[in-house]
Simulated assay, not measured.
Amino acid sequence: MLRKIHASLSVSISELKRNPQAVIDDAHGEAIALLNRNKPTAYIIPAETYEMLMEIAEDVELAGIIEQRRGEKADAIEVSLNEL
């Protein structure tokens, strides 16, 4: 079965075990596919990339909440500035 690898770099688990920091350094900030028996089992990404992805995921979640609330009928009462 063919599998798509979503990284231009890959490393086997045994290679990673030998010298993990060297593998990370050699990637120069790019994502690394971790292979087990020639199948991707995980991806190693820089911390900054992971943090950015988490922020994007949070933004998507918040956008969903906003869209949901837009559809809700609010019991709004109009007031003037003088009434405040």
Rank of each mutant, 00 (worst) to 15 (best):
M1S: 15
M1W: 08
M1E: 12
L2P: 15
L2Q: 15
R3M: 10
K4Q: 15
K4D: 13
K4M: 12
I5N: 01
I5A: 03
A7N: 02
L9I: 04
S10H: 04
S10E: 04
V11P: 00
S12A: 04
S12Y: 02
S12H: 02
I13W: 05
S14Y: 09
S14N: 11
S14I: 08
S14E: 15
E15G: 01
E15D: 14
L16N: 01
R18C: 09
N19W: 04
N19S: 14
P20K: 03
A22R: 13
A22N: 06
A22E: 10
A22K: 13
A22H: 07
V23P: 00
V23C: 08
I24A: 02
I24L: 09
D25A: 08
H28P: 00
H28Q: 11
E30G: 06
A31I: 08
A31P: 04
A31R: 06
I32L: 05
I32D: 00
I32M: 03
A33N: 02
L35N: 03
L35V: 04
L35R: 03
L35F: 03
R37A: 06
R37I: 02
N38S: 14
N38K: 11
N38D: 15
N38H: 12
A42W: 02
Y43M: 04
I44T: 03
I45S: 01
P46A: 07
A47S: 10
E48V: 09
E48W: 03
E48N: 08
Y50H: 14
E51R: 11
L53D: 03
L53M: 10
L53V: 00
M54I: 11
E55P: 00
I56H: 06
I56K: 11
A57L: 08
E58P: 02
E58A: 10
D59C: 05
D59Q: 13
V60D: 07
V60E: 10
E61M: 10
E61C: 06
L62D: 09
A63P: 01
A63M: 13
A63F: 10
I65D: 11
I66V: 15
I66D: 06
E67M: 10
E67C: 05
E67D: 13
E67P: 00
E67W: 05
E67N: 13
Q68C: 06
R70C: 05
E72K: 13
A74I: 09
A74Q: 12
A74D: 06
A74P: 00
D75I: 06
A76T: 06
I77E: 11
I77A: 11
E78H: 07
E78Y: 09
E78S: 07
V79P: 00
V79H: 06
N82Y: 12
N82M: 12
N82W: 08
E83W: 01
